[in-house]
């Protein structure tokens, strides 16, 4: 699966997407310290934390994209940071559980 497939999911809005990269798994968390310590390289970060620091932590953890749940507002500076860091940003009306199930089903997890 790649970021392109995520962008094509039902009810997923693409807010920033530049380079298509493989998505090897998912990590669902709203605690950024937990993401930093435990998220895996190449994952899609599923979270409601929609701000600049989310991008910084995702970059540090090696995540390739962020899926913002519950249609949370995404500030412009978050997109700006994502562009700089080369991290895709998506948004969905699904909650974290539903979004995780969606990704897990497709990944066969």
């Amino acid at each position: 699966m790649t970021l392109h497939d995520i962008a094509a999911f039902d009810d997923v809005e693409t807010l920033h997407f530049n380079t298509d990269l493989p998505v090897t798994g998912g990590y669902t968390s709203d605690l950024l310290s937990d993401v930093m310590a435990n998220a895996g390289e190449g994952c899609l970060l599923i979270t409601i934390q929609a701000h600049n620091n989310t991008v910084a932590v995702a970059a540090l953890a090696g995540a390739v994209g962020i899926l913002v749940c519950n249609n949370r507002p995404v500030p412009d500076d978050m997109i700006e940071s994502a562009r700089r860091e080369g991290i895709a940003v998506f948004r969905t009306s699904r909650n974290q559980f539903e979004a995780s199930c969606m990704l897990g089903n497709r990944l066969g997890a």
Binding site: L32, Q49, H51, N52, N53, T54, P75
Partner: peptide, 8 residues
């Protein structure tokens, strides 16, 4: 603040 605060 939007991050690392009691409200966020």
């Amino acid at each position: 603040r939007h991050a690392f605060s009691v409200e966020s």
